[in-house]
Simulated assay, not measured.
Amino acid sequence: MTSTGLTAPFALARFGEGSEARLGLVAADRIRPLTSADLGAADLNAFLAAPDWTRLQTLAVRDDEEWMPLASVRLTAPVQPRQVLQAGANYREHVIELVAAGLTQNSDRTPDEARAFAAKMMDDRAASGEPYFFIGLPACVVGDDVPLVLPAYSDVHDWELELAIVIGREAFRVSREDALEHVAGYTIVNDITTRDLVFRKDMKEIGTDWYRAKNAPGFLPTGPFLVPAPFVNGGDLTVRLELNGELKQDGSTSDLLFDIAALVSGASQTMPLLPGDLLLTGSPPGNGQHWKRFLRDGDVMTGTIEGLGTQVVRCVAEAGR
C-alpha cells in the first residue's frame, strides 16, 4: 500500500488549478492531468458511461513530464454527480443495536431477548425486504480541501463514514444479477447529519426531514479518489473513522443488509441512475449519537476505507454566529 492508502494501480482524482478543478490520473504518489483526448471522452461522466480502464492503465505506466507529486496539488471531490442517493439502516449490526436499545427501554424484554428479536427482524428484512433510500443534494458534494462549516443552528452535527458507489453505464430497472455491470468505481463519503433536525417537531406525523438534516453546505465530503471497480471488492472493505485520533467507527461492508448489487438494482427501479451519480451504502456503528459526542469547532475527522485512501475533514464553527 502506498502512502495514499490506495491499493489499486491507479485511480482518478480532481485537483485545483486556479479557480477551476481539473481531472487527474493518480498512480502511487504522483498525479498527471487528463485531457479529453487522454480519456477518449468529452469529460469524466462521459468516460464513466463506458469506462476504458485499459486506456488509463497505459497512461499510468508511462514515464513522462506530465507527472507531478501528488502532495503538490490540492485535491477536491473526485466526482461530479447529477444525483446523490443514500441508503439508510443498511448495516445489520448497527440497526440491531438501535432496535434492541429501543425495545429494552420501551418493553419488558431483556437485553438478550430484545437483541434476538431485532436480529430476526433484520434477517427477515434482508431476505424479503427492499433497501431504504433517500436523496441528497449534489451541491453538498465537496472535497476534504473544504473545511466543514458547522451551522450555528444546532450543536448535534454527526458523522457517518460510508462507502459510495460511483455509477458507470446508465442503470434503469436493472436486475441484481446485472447491477454490477453499471458500477464504474467507488469512493469515500462522510454523510454529515444534524441529529435534532431528523424528525419534525412541529408535526411528528410527517416523519423524517432529510433535507434539513443532511443538506447544509459541504455536508457530503467526498473522495479524495475514485477507484475503478475492477480493483475493489466492495463487499468486504474495512470502514474506519477517527475523531481527533480516537477511533469511533470500525466496521466492514460485509455487514451490509443489502449488498452493492441489491442497492444499485433497488435504486434504479424508480429513476435512471446516471454516469457519475453517487449511491451511498449506509454507515456502520460508531456515530456521534452512539458516543454522545458531536462535532465541534477544531475537530478533525480522518476517514479511511480499505484500498480507497484516506479523507481528512476539518471542522470550523460558522463565522459570526
Rank of each mutant, 00 (worst) to 15 (best):
D178H: 06
L197T: 06
Q86K: 03
V312S: 07
D38I: 11
A164M: 04
T2L: 15
L237E: 08
A261Y: 08
V198W: 01
L148T: 00
A152T: 02
S3Q: 11
M122W: 11
V239N: 00
G320V: 13
L197V: 10
S268R: 05
A267F: 03
D29N: 15
P230Y: 07
F47P: 00
L59I: 04
Q249S: 09
G245S: 07
F294D: 08
S36E: 12
A77L: 05
F231L: 11
L273M: 10
F231Q: 07
A87P: 15
T194Y: 01
R14C: 09
H290F: 06
V312N: 04
L137Y: 05
L180K: 01
W53T: 01
D158I: 01
L25C: 14
V227T: 11
S19Y: 02
F47K: 03
D145N: 03
F117N: 08
G143K: 00
D155E: 02
E66Y: 02
A8Q: 12
P131A: 11
L85Q: 08
V84H: 09
R55A: 06
T58V: 06
I135N: 07
G276R: 04
I96A: 01
T187Y: 01
I192Y: 00
I260Y: 04
G143T: 01
I135T: 13
W291P: 00
T35C: 09
A11I: 12
L98R: 01
D297S: 11
G143H: 00
L295Y: 05
A87Y: 04
I135P: 11
A49Q: 12
D144S: 09
L12S: 08
V316F: 00
A179C: 05
S36A: 15
M68A: 12
N244T: 00
Y91G: 06
E66G: 14
A27Q: 10
A119E: 15
A119T: 10
S283D: 10
L274W: 08
V239R: 06
H182N: 05
E17Q: 13
L163K: 04
D145T: 02
G18T: 12
G276E: 09
G223M: 03
P78M: 11
L279C: 13
Q289W: 14
H182C: 06
L23V: 09
G207Y: 15
V313Y: 06
P147I: 01
M301D: 07
D43C: 11
D145Y: 00
